[in-house]
Write a protein that binds this DNA or RNA. Structure first.
Length: 162
DNA sequence: CGCGTTTGACCTGCGC
DNA sequence: GCGCAGGTCAAACGCG
């Protein structure tokens, strides 16, 4: 029932007992699999690999590279629902039809002066796979606790020194 | 009434 | 330079 595990960038996985699913079973149901996935400059990395590391993505157009960095990392979740309750409040600001019948949705953190974005899209090949891409670092604490994601983020921070 | 979603238009980067 | 595709804006709308 609670067949649920998380794959971390170093290849280790969290035991299901580490995660308290009580309050979030409606979001993450049995057989859910969360996989942290590297996001390079191209999002096609998402479909290619299932385990790699969080990365800092250099943002900057050619000829105007100021060396500015953005943190960007992604989850692959196997779930029927798109929206993971990660403890933050998200406001949807766009949805776009893309060629390969994918429908990415774009969300922004509603907290003022916190322009963290996330993009949610379903995998083109496996309809049950939801790819959630986070971009940016929250400048404020979580607004409500989500125990399973707290664990995830705690692990993620190991790879995200700030 | 305030906040979040929907949705078409608009903007911008990139390949040809 | 042009056109396409991805990303964002913002007005209208819905819901609690």
């Amino acid at each position: 029932m609670e067949n649920y595990h998380i794959l971390f960038p170093d290849g280790s996985s969290a035991s299901p007992s580490l995660l308290t699913m009580t309050n979030h079973r409606s979001y993450l149901q049995g057989n859910d699999v969360i996989t942290t996935t590297k996001v390079g400059n191209q999002c096609e990395d998402l479909d290619a690999k299932d385990v790699s590391s969080e990365s800092e993505v250099k943002v900057g157009k050619k000829g105007d590279n100021k060396g500015m960095r953005k943190h960007k990392y992604a989850f692959q979740t196997r779930s029927q629902v798109d929206i993971l309750d990660d403890g933050y409040r998200w406001r949807k600001y766009g949805q776009k039809t893309v060629k390969n019948s994918k429908f990415p949705s774009y969300y922004r953190c509603t907290h003022k002066e916190c322009n963290v974005k996330k993009q949610v899209q379903r995998s083109s090949k496996d309809d049950e796979i939801v790819v959630t891409t986070y971009e940016g670092i929250h400048t404020h604490p979580v607004e409500k606790f989500s125990e399973n994601f707290e664990q995830i983020l705690r692990q993620m921070q190991t790879y995200n020194p700030l």
